[in-house]
């Protein structure tokens, strides 16, 4: 397949992702300005991280003046899934996708971009991956900018309701999986139970948001690995 065609195909595949990203990052922008960040600080976070869950948790930690260690650990755990996706995507890249290409384009591995790339019927080339990244990156950045600027203008009755968008996206990722897999359902319910315990049990509720997510995810996933290890052939990934 020639390069131009490869690029164009990637670019087109990025359109629906970019639309979704614009909307979700808009609510991230609102949240950023509500947390006391300047508009350009919120935009810079989006431009350098390109990830939903990690950024939302990160801004909460920054707003609470958490430690850098807590921030680093939370990003490590929340974004650990990208490590698995990178390994998985490695199985579907063409022979010209070398170290330099991986080191640069690897920046753009997100749940949705990974899902599109890994399901491509032919091996993924560098030029396809580049085309695929462009629009989602622009969507994520401009959505954040719009939200960060308008977040201060919109009345709370509207902006707080929009805050549910990111959680809606998380639900849309988790529910189809737990619907088809009983073991994942049980592990997810365990994570939610631990999360509620950390919030509502007085002694435990002193634990900060970032660490709470880490504790829930690690404990529940460990239980999952021990109780219901996945068969050797199954691939991970949120999408």
């Amino acid at each position: 397949m020639n390069r131009k065609k490869d690029f164009r195909e990637g670019f087109r595949n990025g359109i629906p992702i970019a639309l979704g990203y614009f909307f979700v990052s808009f609510t991230f922008g609102i949240m950023g300005s509500q947390s006391g960040l300047l508009w350009w600080e919120t935009v810079l976070i989006s431009m350098t991280n390109l990830t939903s869950a990690g950024q939302f948790a990160g801004v909460k930690i920054i707003a609470a003046a958490g430690s850098v260690t807590e921030l680093a650990l939370s990003q490590l755990i929340i974004n650990l899934r990208y490590a698995l996706m990178g390994i998985s995507l490695s199985q579907n890249t063409d022979e010209n996708f070398g170290t330099a290409g991986r080191a640069t384009l690897g920046f753009g591995i997100t749940d949705e971009i990974y899902a599109v790339a890994v399901n491509r019927p032919v091996p993924v080339s560098k030029i396809y991956m580049l085309g695929l990244l462009i629009l989602p990156y622009i969507g994520w950045t401009t959505g954040t900018l719009a939200g960060a600027v308008l977040g201060n203008v919109l009345p709370p009755v509207i902006s707080e309701a929009m805050g549910i968008a990111i959680y809606g996206m998380f639900i849309a990722i988790v529910v189809p999986k737990v619907k088809e897999e009983r073991k994942t359902l049980l592990i997810v319910l365990l994570a939610v139970a631990i999360s509620c315990a950390l919030r509502y049990i007085p002694v435990l509720s002193k634990i900060s948001v970032g660490f709470a997510v880490i504790i829930c995810a690690v404990l529940a996933s460990l239980a999952g690995a021990l109780l219901f290890p996945v068969p050797a052939s199954e691939e991970g990934g949120a999408a």
């Binding site: 988790v174 999986k177 592990i187 997810v188 999360s195 829930c216 995810a217 996933s221 999952g224």
Partner: peptide, 18 residues
């Protein structure tokens, strides 16, 4: 592998609820 397999879902669920 199994630990990594469950991570995306446990992270997102714990962040969402409550």
């Amino acid at each position: 592998k199994s630990f990594l397999y469950y991570i995306p879902y446990t992270v997102l669920a714990a962040m969402t609820f409550p």
